[in-house]
Design a protein around this nucleic acid. Sequence first.
DNA 1: AAACTGTTCAACCGCGTGACC
DNA 2: AGGTCACGCGGTTGAACAGTT
Length: 344
Amino acid sequence: MGRTPCCDKDGVKKGAWSTEEDQILFDYINKHGHGSWRTLPKNAGLLRCGKSCRLRWTNYLRPDIKRGPFTSDEEATIVKLQGTLGNKWAAIASQMPGRTDNEIKNFWNTHLKKRLSTPLPLALPNINIKIEGDSSSPLSTTTRHMAQWESTRVEADARLSFSRPGQQQQQQHKFDQDYYLKLWNSDIGKSFRDINKVQKDGRGGGGGCESSTSQASSLTKLGPGSVDDDTLATTTTTTTKTCSAAAAIVKRSDSSKAIHHQHEVEGGLCYYYEGIEEETKPCRLDVMMMMMSSSDSITSTTNEFTNYSDTALKQLLDIPGGSGMDFLEDESDDFINFLDLRCV
DNA sequence: AAACTGTTCAACCGCGTGACC
DNA sequence: AGGTCACGCGGTTGAACAGTT
């Protein structure tokens, strides 16, 4: 039997729309609404199929469409959302008012994908967190999902920050600062802070994994690029098989520190700053952990948190039952163990 | 100036899905 | 329950334009 065609192929115009056709469609929808797309062309007097009319309206004629080039913030949003949601262009577009899925998709395919596919100046070591214990336990699944999410996000952030020079990069830094600030002020951030507090109070920083205080004071400048006075880009570089790369931007109050020395590490140069411990055994959670310990230099007047980050994380965690984020509110040893596993 | 190559993006195509009968 | 319809989505295409030789 097969599927019925969306429209009669005979007598239906295809290809680029003329201004007259645009005007007819625009006037008709403004007057009557689109109603049934299938019957719209006939009612409006257009020799187009309904599908073509719908596409023309949603992608071009709709009055709320934002025209013009994508801003750096929009670019960053696309990269972040694509990293978490994949090629769900409609879902991404829903987070970006005025932008169509088609526009975002095109922009991704012609600009961002190409840009992100080029090798980074600094190779990002593979993230490889060793999960101890019963791998079939729900927590292990959770942590693996979390690791995947963080891996994707961190790499996207790192690549984006590398991909834009000069002023644009500074804007990206600002975006990242805002992003992590929001993350820090979210419930998730609170949970991490709580856990960190427990870890500090109850365990200290010894053993195979430094305290977060130690980690926070191990900020290093990523790559051989220019040093931003206000910002320290932190990277985790390691030759061990257990720790991972991260590139994050953390605002510090003592950003006036001069570079103490630098040395080569796997994938690039590390800069060490005056008064900053150089020992570091970072991992993907370093971003959060460093923010924890730098909280005295992080201030904010808003607790607003972007929905997509939270939602995307929940989706990716895909934990049966409840909100799926309960473990983050739980100061259980299991989760602390997860933090501990970073350094083996 | 012409030919060629690469890039962009509007539009098309086919498929999945939910609503309806 | 199964067929049809309508719509939305993601991948792909191709015309137009820009840049290079």
